[in-house]
Computed example of a mutant assay.
Amino acid sequence: MTQPEPVGALPLLTTAELPDGTRLPVRALRAPAPDRFLPSGSGPAPWPPPAPAVLILPAMGTPARFYRRFARQLHDEGLTVLTVDLRGQGEATPRATGPGAPGHGYRAIVEEDIPAVVAAIRAELGTEPPLYVLGHSLGGQLALVYASLTKPGGAKPGGAGVDGVAVVATGSVWFRAYGPLRGPGLLLLQLLITAVSAVLGRWPGSRLGFGGDQPKGVMRDWARQVRTGRYSGKGSTLDYEAALATLELPVLAVSVDGDTFAPAAALDHLLGKVPRARLTRRHYAAQEAGDRLDHFAWTRTGGALAKWVAAWAATPGE
């Protein structure tokens, strides 16, 4: 029996299916097809280029449906907008905890899932529209790692890459980037998460108020980055840090007023890993948003930010 669509859901575009049975539904608002224009004089009529497409990758434990309003604001700016849940979250199956739960970490997300999602999107949209990934928090961190592994001439674990990455309210979670007051607390938090995840085989973040329900592997890789400042995925043969250092794609980095989860120093540390990226850096202030902002609230008042993303996608790296 077909399940009814969730109220307010974006239309389903496609579903990326992995060999291990993981299914990642991709929802989309497609930009209208460009009108053909007839130039004066003779000769064939050229077609305007297709609208850029932007794939939103969520924060840890945050379902893709959380970004519906921002997706519609991006669509209002003429973009094709796509959303997908991280493995085990939201509509993705199997769930992160419970029977059949995947015991995955960063490696599966950046080397298997995102490449499969991008391939599924390319199969639907074609290869002509520029495709960008916009990641929030953990989604932004993993988007940069994925893009660095799939750039032309790179490791390419899953096929063709994307044309650029935007990160919003994102930063490295290295404890030293949080200063002498908050850094030790972050170290204690990762110790607690590591211990609980080891005992239970999962992290019950919905009950404990951080990160949502997660498999042990994701929290293990997250905690390692807290301690060391370096990105890696257990079981991977790829050097994520070396790949990041060679990334040359356009990157839009947007910090947000009131964001205590991704302060400026944390974003600085993350961007320091991609010194060759064609970087555009902006700060989204409450005055521009017209409302209070924090690590999550920007998604509700993202109209001005959507204009920035659209302008950057039209001329990335300029």
Rank of each mutant, 00 (worst) to 15 (best):
E5A: 15
E5P: 00
V7E: 11
G8C: 03
A9C: 04
L13N: 02
T14Q: 12
L18T: 03
P19K: 06
P19L: 10
G21V: 04
P25I: 05
R27D: 01
R30L: 15
A31D: 00
A33S: 12
L38M: 11
G41Q: 02
P50I: 14
I56M: 13
A64V: 03
F66I: 02
R68P: 00
R69D: 01
D85E: 06
L86D: 05
E91P: 02
R95C: 08
A101T: 03
G103Q: 15
Y106A: 11
V117F: 08
A123P: 06
L125S: 08
L125R: 13
Y132T: 06
L134T: 04
G135W: 05
H136A: 10
L144Y: 04
V145R: 01
T150A: 14
P152I: 11
G159T: 06
V162T: 07
V167T: 07
V168F: 03
A169G: 15
W174K: 06
W174Y: 14
W174I: 02
F175M: 05
A177N: 09
G179D: 09
P180E: 09
L181I: 14
G183L: 11
G183A: 09
P184F: 02
I193S: 02
V199P: 09
V199H: 13
L208A: 09
D213W: 02
V218E: 03
M219H: 00
R220F: 07
V226D: 02
G229Q: 03
K234R: 15
S236W: 06
S236Q: 07
Y240D: 06
E248L: 01
V251D: 01
V251F: 01
A253V: 05
G258A: 06
D259Y: 02
F261E: 14
A262S: 14
A262N: 08
A265K: 11
H269W: 11
L270Q: 12
P275D: 08
A277K: 12
R278A: 13
L279E: 07
H283M: 08
R292V: 11
L293A: 13
L293R: 03
L293D: 01
T299I: 14
K307Y: 04
W308Q: 10
A313D: 03
G317N: 10
